[in-house]
Simulated assay, not measured.
Amino acid sequence: MKIIVTGSLGNISKPLTKELVEKGHDVTVISSNAERQTEIESLGAKAAIGTMEDIDFLSESFAGADIIYAMEALNAGVFFNHEIDFIQANIQIAKNYKEAIERSGVKNIIHLSSIGAHTNEGNGILKFHYEAEKVLNELPENVSIKFMRPVGFYYNMFAFIPTIKSQNVIIQNYGGDDQEPWVSPFDIASVIAEEIEKPFNGREIRYVASEEISPNEIAKILGEAIGNPDLQWITISDEDLLNNLIKAGMNPDTAKGFVEMNMARRSNVLYEDYYKNRPEMGNIKVKDFAKNFATAYYKN
């Protein structure tokens, strides 16, 4: 099949591209970075260089495809850009995808959404996923869409490294012994590859998770991996976390969204629909990820 992969060679798109090529699919990877072209081609895929803001480019790239894997991808630096509304920027990308899909005539879409996309209230920065799904659901009924809703990514834990190094603790506005789901991008890629080869039928939702584990267990595993078995996860107030993020230079509205997202972790808002539709766990666990965490910890 001819498959379009958005997201360049990111944490999900790269392993997804590798798996799809190995299975014999004709894969084109969309990237805004021309320097990625050689690496994309080295994987056996084609490169289409352009941006998610360019609807003409997207329409031309999508034309003739059997399936499109679509994700909203803004680099992490956007969090610190005080001129960009992160939520609205992502919603606009979804609108661009919608128009390009309509122009191209592609009928099968896999969209990377997120846990929290079941509601537009109380989920903080994840609200844009609800809005993006809403936009894509406006496509004609003959366009089938599979919405993938992964939980929190393991690699988000790399953000713990600075405070571990400076204060010897993990600091968040949530914590404790209650288990919550996390996921490896490799497990997400595997699930997407699996869904690509299954029939498309209307609108479907699938949650993706690798392990359910508590913050205190995570601190223990990461601490042992970096040679700090006494590493603690401590909880601070929402206000203190917000002030810390703003002090670090994050866009205040984006920072507020992050704090609200974590508040939703403490309540049942974030996970209520996930637990109603609990998936099978993936293969990669926090103990596996901890090896990469330790490498990054000692590299920085």
Rank of each mutant, 00 (worst) to 15 (best):
N156M: 08
G202F: 13
I246A: 04
D253A: 14
I218T: 14
N168C: 01
P150L: 09
I161Q: 06
P215W: 07
S184A: 08
D238T: 14
V191T: 09
I205N: 09
V169R: 14
E224R: 11
I205K: 10
N201L: 13
I171G: 00
L222E: 03
G202E: 10
I205R: 11
E197I: 11
I236E: 02
A255F: 12
K198H: 12
D240W: 00
I234E: 12
I171W: 01
Y174H: 13
Q232L: 12
F153W: 13
Y174A: 00
I246D: 06
K198V: 06
P215E: 05
P279F: 02
A219G: 07
E239D: 14
F186L: 11
L270A: 10
Y207R: 02
Y275E: 09
G282W: 08
Q232I: 01
Q172S: 08
V208E: 00
D187K: 03
T254P: 01
A209I: 05
R266P: 01
K146H: 14
Y155S: 13
G152H: 10
Y154E: 01
A219R: 04
I218V: 15
V208K: 02
I236H: 01
I192C: 06
Y275F: 15
E239S: 10
N244L: 08
G152D: 04
A264F: 05
Y271V: 01
K256C: 00
I236P: 01
I246G: 03
E224D: 15
F147L: 12
D238Y: 07
G202T: 13
V169T: 10
E197F: 05
I170T: 07
I226P: 03
P229A: 06
L270F: 15
V151S: 05
N251A: 08
D178Y: 07
T163Y: 04
E224Q: 11
D178L: 13
K146R: 15
M148I: 15
D273P: 07
E204H: 07
S237G: 15
I188L: 06
I205E: 05
P181T: 09
E217G: 05
P229D: 10
R266M: 12
E195K: 14
I188S: 04
A255D: 04
P199E: 12
Y155Q: 12
